[in-house]
Amino acid sequence: MTSTEFFQQLINGLSLGAFYALIALGYTMVYGVLRFINFAHGDVFMIGAFCGYYLSPRLLPHFTGGLTPLGPVAVLILTMLICALLGVTIEKLAYRPLRQRPKLTVLITAIGVSLFLEYGGQFVFGADPKSFPELMPDRAIAGTGALTITTTQLAAFIVTICLLVALTFIVKRTRLGMAMRALSNNPTAAALMGVNIDVVISFTFAQLSIDRSAYGSSPRDQGIRCGCSRRHRKHSGRRRWRNYSRRCGDICRWLGFFNLSRRDRILAFNRDFAFPSSRNFRTCA
């Protein structure tokens, strides 16, 4: 492998990795705060992609002339809002009533929600692959020598970095972020301190849905698909979504649960050993 090839693959890997990081980020938000595996993660991401698909032909014509660059941003923001709404709705309808139940119950519900979104999406959007509209001109950036860096790759990378910074800011510097970290550490104590658990959890869901949709509607050069007939199952996007859904979980683990809070070991010790009474709540939450 020549060095050019190596750096080319490195760039490709970085841009694709940026996408995955964005998904895993949302995933770790839920896992970090609520401690349960959200199987429906990849499916909300799918909804985000389809929002982008249906919104852009309707929104982009309104942005002409000097406003043209704002078009994709508008699509992105609207998609984020829709997905946030979806995330909150799912949390409210499916997960909130189960907060006090065993973790397994929530896990199974999450599988149910995932299947529902997946096949519901196939029902509503149809099973045929759709090609995603071009949100921004996709061309190689000049002046990189033998290497090819496309504008979409760059955009994906920049969007990911921006969202990462924004998320870190929210978690580390705002009141809400502090509440989230508190909740992750010890839900009972957090509630005693006057943190409204429901609001925080809803917000977490909204936020991660935002991240996901950002990925979903990022300008990409690939077509999007949702499911396929059984005949074409091998190439079906359905499997792909499911793979995404699973891959996020893997990435999250590979990162060693990089927790939002950089959790204090002593606090963790207190939680699990010194004040074991809080454990019940924890395993249920």
């Binding site: 499916a94 199974i108 519900t109 599988i111 149910g112 929600v113 995932s114 299947l115 529902f116 096949y119 519901g120 029902f123």
Partner: peptide
């Protein structure tokens, strides 16, 4: 779809 709704 029905399967998943039953599950939830």
């Amino acid at each position: 779809i029905i399967y998943s709704l039953v599950l939830i």
